[in-house]
Design a protein around this nucleic acid. Sequence first.
DNA 1: GTGAAAGCGCTAACAG
DNA 2: CTGTTAGCGCTTTCAC
Lengths: 343, 343
Amino acid sequence: MSLDTDGTSRTRRPQMEDVARMAGVSRATVSRALSGHPAINEDTRQRIREIARRLNYTVNVGAKNLRQGTNQTIGFVIPYESTVRQAVSDPFFLSMLGSVADALTDRGFEMLVSRVDASEIDQVASAVESGRASGVILVGQWHQHAQLNHLAKRGVPLVVWGGQLRKQAYATVGSENELGGYLAARHLLERGARHVAFFGDLRLPEVGLRYQGYLRAHAEAGRKVLKRLQINVPFAAELAKTAIDSYLSTRPRLDAICAASDLLAMIAIQSLGATGVRVPEDVAVVGYDDVPFAASFNPPLTTVSQQIALAGVELVSALLEIIGGGRAQNRTLPTSLIIRQSA
Amino acid sequence: MSLDTDGTSRTRRPQMEDVARMAGVSRATVSRALSGHPAINEDTRQRIREIARRLNYTVNVGAKNLRQGTNQTIGFVIPYESTVRQAVSDPFFLSMLGSVADALTDRGFEMLVSRVDASEIDQVASAVESGRASGVILVGQWHQHAQLNHLAKRGVPLVVWGGQLRKQAYATVGSENELGGYLAARHLLERGARHVAFFGDLRLPEVGLRYQGYLRAHAEAGRKVLKRLQINVPFAAELAKTAIDSYLSTRPRLDAICAASDLLAMIAIQSLGATGVRVPEDVAVVGYDDVPFAASFNPPLTTVSQQIALAGVELVSALLEIIGGGRAQNRTLPTSLIIRQSA
DNA sequence: GTGAAAGCGCTAACAG
DNA sequence: CTGTTAGCGCTTTCAC
């Protein structure tokens, strides 16, 4: 092995041929030995494995994929608004990424992460069409129902985390958004809240459904819903903070907030605190997602659980079903209200 | 195009040959046209591009990589303690992932994410040795200095986010940890704190360096450091919460805390709050990292900035330098204390 | 300016 | 049980 002066090895990567030569067998035998083919002598296999190990030899996955016409990688797409050039920051989103990564690892898949501009959602297809991935997981539907349908019809295996809509050609995994919104609002109303604001972007299917639940809770309680209490707040942290600060600075009359995400709830609580309003005494706040960190917030967040750990498992198994040629069911994860101290 | 009853296309993916046939040229010409080779008629190129677009044809990246012997993907490794089977949850960690993803996207690279068991760090090499990635970015050194050196010497292009140690064969990017610890501790001492606890796992190089800074600040102020105030707290959320709760439940005598991460600071603040201790009035807390969310915490976190957005850019450019055959410098990002309200 | 042909590193018939 | 051979989809000399 040739070494540079700095001790770094610059030898070309070993390949199957090298292992074969050292073992005195053919490439085919090495291939079989390494992949656990049954028709190989156990002794031979051991010997070959050992040689491969000594050489730090690993099968070239690209060549293997090419030959087999398959691959074991899944694309995970991060939406991204080019207009604001924002970094990923919502803890829910990142937790989902972690959850999916775990689930994929368990099933022997790798994860290829890419950011795509929300307005060029067609790019999602490229990971699959260029053969880099067998399918794609998308977290967040944005406003792109039609394009997603188009992608799915084009034959791109696709699973989306989000709200379930009519006439979907793609599979979704999501939680019971309407119920979640309902539980949150009902809890607040039961606690005696009279003016419950709703923070979130209604154009997003998931948020829209949660708002429906919020309306239902009000109807059931025989309470009127005030238009002025529905505030359009984007999910992105910086934008959200601006929107919330500016809204709250008008000192609106409210005693409770339903937020469409824990991040929004936390921002709201902090913003309220800055102006001397106490949570939950003066204003009660319910979040959404139950991010790992919600329990450690100050005050600990009352929130609607999204079962993030389970979400990854379900997204992955739905996708693998589709890839396997099946027709994946939409899956809905159970939702519940986690009562802590913010409401 | 053959369509199933559900309207999903089941046609085999088009390949270069198909485009060539439709354009009445050879594969070679299509390849050149698509890759922008100059020796192709502009008309021909347009025509070919158009056909490719119509067919949703995209070059098969695996085949291309195999032929060219290169690839445009980088591995991002998530450390993972199999003993606790923990999901990724530290917001700092996830923010770094986002930051690296952004930087890679900008430079035309893709990111392959994999989790590897902290005790089998050798696996980090496999992404490179199997040809899936050209190099690897690792966030967090864990306790594995020797193995990392070994990997680098084996020829795996490797950049690590973390503290810089003596005799490193691998490149690091990190912030001025000693200075960060110093600034945090000095700030607390200047505010009149007399018993400053330090929360963090000293076995991690970065944390060790921060502790050095903490010691220096005490020395400068002529203050003794109490052994009982140095608490080993792991970074993982659940474990950390347990450790912190159990420590604080002993009602130790302290009036300030230097935490090794924002997550730890937040957990500490929440834990203190639960027992009626106010922050910063009774106990002042300084975090570390300045995660996007620190400003929105309640109270807004005083913390040491790690310049996460810049970190991704630097990690990526260091790695690409190494891959390009260069010998990357270690890079240190400037550190500063961000004073908000928790201290 | 374009085509023919070789080959990247591997696996899987098919033979023996 | 093991070897021979063809070829996965692409790029790139080398000719013309």
